Simulated scan of single mutants.
Amino acid sequence: VARREASGEFELRWGIIGCGDVCERKSGPAMRKVPGSSIVAVMRRDLEKARDFAQRHGVHRVYNRVEDLLADPLVNAVYVATPPHLHCEMTVKAAESGRPVLVEKPMARTPDECRRMIRACALNNVLLMVAYYRRFFPMTRHLQELVAGGDLGEVRHARLYLTFATRISPTDERAWRWNPEISGGGQLMDIGSHRIDILHCLFGPASEATAWFDPHPPDKVERTVSATVVYRSGVVVSILVDEGMAFPEDCLEIQGTKGRLVARPFDTNLTVHTLARGKRTYSFQVPQPSHEKLIAHFLDVMRGQARPLIPGEEGIQANLVIDAIYRSALEGRTVAVESVDVDL
């Protein structure tokens, strides 16, 4: 349906499945801000919370069943913002209704769920994109230019540190993130997937991972992950994700034969030191709302004015690496990163 009407005049009329915290702070404001985009319907199993969100965001059509939202003729694009255990099911249903899909990160809990999503959208000829919105941040674009442009020479090594303070209380409404049946993993899967996606953006597909983690029973997900990931491009990346740190850090360091860079904090401050140009520092602003450029890009793709930057085949890449890290830690050996391999 949406593909047939896509043109230069196409406007996104979003139906949101799962209008929670991310929609409140990030995607919802972006959908309302981008010209040619609006929210026409929301769905949440808790109808009162759905009505509350709708009232505050000027949305008039509210549902507590996904089937009812997908039957709404005004909806011509679907945004899936549920917890990850529902990403696959909701994406498949939206695709079968003939609507393009934007799904939150991580794409799903497992690579196989991601493959099902890619297959469903391909068979129904609808767009699938994954909401790795940091691809559009100024920092990410500058890192791409530095790595691809040769300023650092041959890039050989990188180190990624993502550490956190104490884990949130089990009674917090966000505590589902530490239930692997819902989330698919711990901080590596949740916030770490953003960083793994950027590594793929910079270095391409990964080939293998060697990892260790400390689950700290009785917790069901890890508190600490230490991994080495080798990329097909030859870059070797050391990754540390840890909770309970006194001084949390979000840092990426890249080493090349002609220079190095340090992004700390990852999204905003950058120091580059090269043989040719010496030491330089940069400061970047985080776009607000964070999803604005992502939503604008989705609209451009639907209008035929751009190719999708993060289709399902790209979005799955973070899941493939994270899956290899988890399997390596569990099995105590180096594990090959699977390929996409979607059978249509």
Rank of each mutant, 00 (worst) to 15 (best):
H291K: 06
D300P: 11
D250V: 07
V321K: 01
W14Q: 10
C88W: 00
V66H: 01
F203C: 11
I198C: 06
R115V: 11
A296S: 10
R61G: 05
V155S: 02
E313T: 15
G256Q: 01
L240V: 11
M139E: 03
N179T: 13
C114L: 08
Q285W: 13
S169W: 07
R260I: 09
P29D: 02
G304F: 04
V236H: 01
T281F: 08
F136C: 10
R167S: 07
K105M: 06
G98C: 04
E338I: 12
V34E: 03
H194R: 02
D151V: 15
R327M: 09
R134H: 10
Q317C: 15
E48G: 12
A318K: 01
E11F: 11
A120H: 00
S183I: 04
W212A: 15
L299E: 03
V92G: 01
I182W: 02
E48L: 13
A120D: 00
V1Y: 09
R45H: 14
V337I: 03
F164A: 03
V225H: 07
G8K: 08
T274N: 01
A329F: 10
K33S: 15
I322K: 00
F284Q: 00
G58W: 02
A94H: 03
H157Q: 14
A306V: 06
M189C: 12
P287S: 03
A95W: 00
K258D: 14
K93P: 10
P265T: 08
Y161H: 14
Y161C: 14
R333K: 15
V235M: 00
E5H: 13
D323H: 12
F137K: 02
V340R: 00
P217F: 12
T334F: 04
A30P: 13
L143D: 04
R280A: 09
S38P: 09
E154K: 11
I254L: 03
G15Q: 01
L160P: 05
S226P: 11
V241N: 02
A158G: 08
I118L: 09
H200G: 08
R223L: 14
S328I: 07
V272I: 08
P287G: 05
P217W: 11
T171P: 09
V126D: 00
A120Y: 00
V59Q: 01
E145Y: 13
C114T: 01
Q144K: 10
R232W: 15
F266K: 01
I198S: 04
D242F: 11
P29T: 05
V321D: 00
N269M: 15
S169P: 04
T228I: 13
Q305L: 15
L202V: 07
V241Q: 04
A30G: 12
L70A: 06
I325N: 03
P205H: 04
L102S: 07
M139K: 05
A209S: 03
R25G: 08
E208F: 06
Y161F: 15
D72R: 10
D52L: 14
N319Q: 13
L188E: 02
